[in-house]
Amino acid sequence: MLLSTLVFGVVLGGTYALVALGLTIQYGVARIMNLSFGEVVMFGAFATFVLFTGASLSPVLGLFVVVPLAFAISWILYTVLMRPLVKRARHPERVEIDSILVTFGLLFLFQGLFTQAFGSGYTGYGWLQAPVEILGARVASGRVLGLGLACLIGLGLWAATTRTRWGLTMRAVATRPAFAALVGIDENRVARQAFALGGAIAGAGGAILSMYQPVTPIDGGFLTMKALVIVIMGGIGNMGGALAAGLIIGIVEALVSYAVDPGLTLAATYAIFLAVLLWRPKGLFA
């Protein structure tokens, strides 16, 4: 039983890590603290549900529809809402405050829209529930597939940021935003791309999440909280750190909900967060 809990934790942690990767790109490169990030994850989950039940499109194929849509939504959000805030601000602090406020508003807006469309209860679909055996633990095959997809996307992302010229410009803006312009990088363009890319990853994370568990419209806020904690734990902009932190949070959450109470998962996350704040506020691997 403990073993299957651990496997559950790793699967959950893999999805969290992927989602946090999207957030760390948005925050690290575009420098927008996006409190509505989890809502894009929810969009991914709900869109996959609609495609599966409405058009009987397999969730894996659904990724090819959901991810571009999430990319487009985030692109539009950046262009229409975030860019004007960046432009009008006299100093970066103002952008941070304004973007926190606007994305907090977006959170309520999206939650309202989701509740309107899908109701406040659980939304989910049955898919790939046949169990497979891993290390003696029985796990639904959808979970295993979800973990595999999260790894695949994460790996692709890592390769893209470390091995391509495009990845280099991203990292340049992330580490020295003021100098990026000196070497001919259009900071605004890179920020927009990073914001949209982060959103696309969020959409993928939502689609994967929906493959193995039902969701409710308010889950987005919780996902944002967890992703933020993971980003801080791993160190802002540190992809490897986000992966490790995501797995830690996923496993701890699974253990707490198995051994203590499923209602305490966020409390467990915040207990870890508190420890990180007191001990290593710059991230576990700084």
Binding site: M33, L35, E93, E96, I100, G221, F222, T224, M225, L228, V229, I232, V260, D261, G263, L264, T265, L266, A267, T269, Y270, F273, L274, L277, L278, P281
Partner: peptide
């Protein structure tokens, strides 16, 4: 004490989840 000696984002993140945290603990 945990957050205000650090940059503003830490405080925002903590305050974002604080109500839910307290609610979970009381409910439990």
């Amino acid at each position: 004490l945990a957050t205000l000696r650090l940059a503003g984002v830490y405080f925002v993140i903590f305050s974002f989840g604080l109500a839910e945290l307290v609610r979970q603990i009381i409910t439990w």
